[in-house]
Amino acid sequence: MLARPRARAASWLVLATRAIFVAAFGAFVVGPIAVLVLWSIAQQWFWPSPLPSAYTLRWYAWALDVPNVLRSLQMSLVVAVLVTAVTTAVALPAAWVIGRVPFRGKAAVRAAFALPLMVPYIALGIGIATVFYALGLAGTLGGVVLAHTIATLPFGILVLTAAVEAAEPEIEEAALACGASRWQAFRRVTLPMLAPALLSQAVYVFTLSMDEFTLTLLVSSPDTATLPVQMYAAIGEGYFQVSSALAVLLLTPSVLLIYLMVRFARTSLVSAEGG
């Protein structure tokens, strides 16, 4: 067999160029996150010094003392739990029908469910805010949950439909052939097969809701402000150590959850929230 050209040893020049490029790329991607983390623990950081000259954890204590932070964290958690429950309850039957049952107009239904991803997020936000103000939903907990649900539903349906399509119908058919009712087959056979997908869907939707900013900013009131909205207000105050500490607190669970999901559920989805 002929030696392939690519098997030739790359010259040191090529290797060095590639190493420099990869290092520069790494610095570009990690840099902003590193700066955020460094600011959150920096007691003093003067230009031109690459690193802070003294460190402290004080800003994390301050971050939790910012007015309304704990209340907005509580609001974020309540909203995320409700959004996860609503999204799962709504997405599961739709995903099951789309993934399993042949019917006319399926392509149109799929396209309609992907529609929220097709328009700019801010257009959705202004539209929803207009409607919510007219209906008196603006500023209410229900309004925030509904707004989040439209952001999470396309992803919930996508993940669950893929799982339903991957689960073999033969096993369910076997259960039906053995005399199980359709509900029993679903409850005892299909649902357990979908459990891992349901879990990763729930984690993903929960994270999306915790991180949602644009729609919440437009439809929430001070009483229903979530943590990202509160963080935006804190950024406006200009104390960047405190804002950085808040940001790191909000960032850590997202990155951790998504890392765990990619690592263990082998789902390649990443936080693709709009806005």
Partner: peptide, 26 residues
């Protein structure tokens, strides 16, 4: 590294980038 930016909530990404590209930033 390629997927990292997508795992960061967009509001936090915006803030981190502002600090990173600041006049006296990293």
């Amino acid at each position: 590294l390629v997927t990292l930016p997508l795992a960061v909530p967009v509001l936090i990404a915006a803030y981190a980038l502002t600090l990173f590209f600041a006049e006296h930033g990293l």
